[in-house]
């Protein structure tokens, strides 16, 4: 099963490499990875999506917790949560394609953020499934480039991951 693990870690040099290194060292897999500072400059928030059965996920969370730089973590998929990913996608857009891509973008509530006579750059936010859906919906249109941030997530309601 796919899990979203959200980690608060010390904003120290080398902390990220310890987390990433752990995954390869212990043969865990990483689907997406996303890291940035938080409102507290001493902390970074890292979100990783991974696939594994319960035993593997238990090991992943335990091994991550063992890292000295990891302050706290939560498996968001254990409860109600919101997940988002940002994608920017460059598509060939000439003639009739221009109107069709614009329509598809509107349906997915995306925005066209850059335009040339032959290319649209579309920005889209949502769950990974939605972003995959958009790529599929583009059908025969020529995709020139895709860039995605990887998943970020947060628990619903009053649950908070903080110190």
């Amino acid at each position: 099963m796919r899990h979203i693990i959200s980690i608060l870690m010390e904003n120290e040099p080398g902390a990220l490499s310890r987390v990433v290194g752990l995954f390869s060292q212990r043969n865990f897999n990483i689907e997406t990875l996303n890291v940035a500072p938080t409102e507290d400059p001493t902390l970074s928030r890292l979100t990783v999506t991974t696939i594994g059965d319960d035993r593997v996920i238990e090991q992943i969370t335990k091994q991550l917790n063992k890292l000295i730089d990891v302050v706290k973590l939560v498996d968001l998929t254990e409860g109600q949560h919101i997940e988002r990913e940002l994608m920017m996608i460059k598509v060939k857009a000439v003639g009739a394609q221009r109107a069709e891509i614009k329509r598809t973008t509107d349906i997915f509530r995306g925005q066209i953020v850059d335009v040339t006579p032959s290319v649209f750059t579309v920005q889209l936010t949502g769950s990974s499934d939605k972003l995959n859906g958009f790529i599929q919906a583009l059908g025969n249109n020529t995709i020139l480039e895709v860039v995605r941030t990887g998943v970020s997530g947060i628990a619903r309601g009053e649950k908070v991951l903080s110190l």
């Binding site: 040099p13 080398g14 490499s17 310890r18 290194g21 060292q25 000295i68």
Partner: peptide, 14 residues
């Protein structure tokens, strides 16, 4: 050395 030793230490400091 921090990189080379990373998988075999409990922790490391620079």
């Amino acid at each position: 050395m921090i990189g080379v030793s990373r998988p075999i230490v409990k922790h490391s400091f620079s």
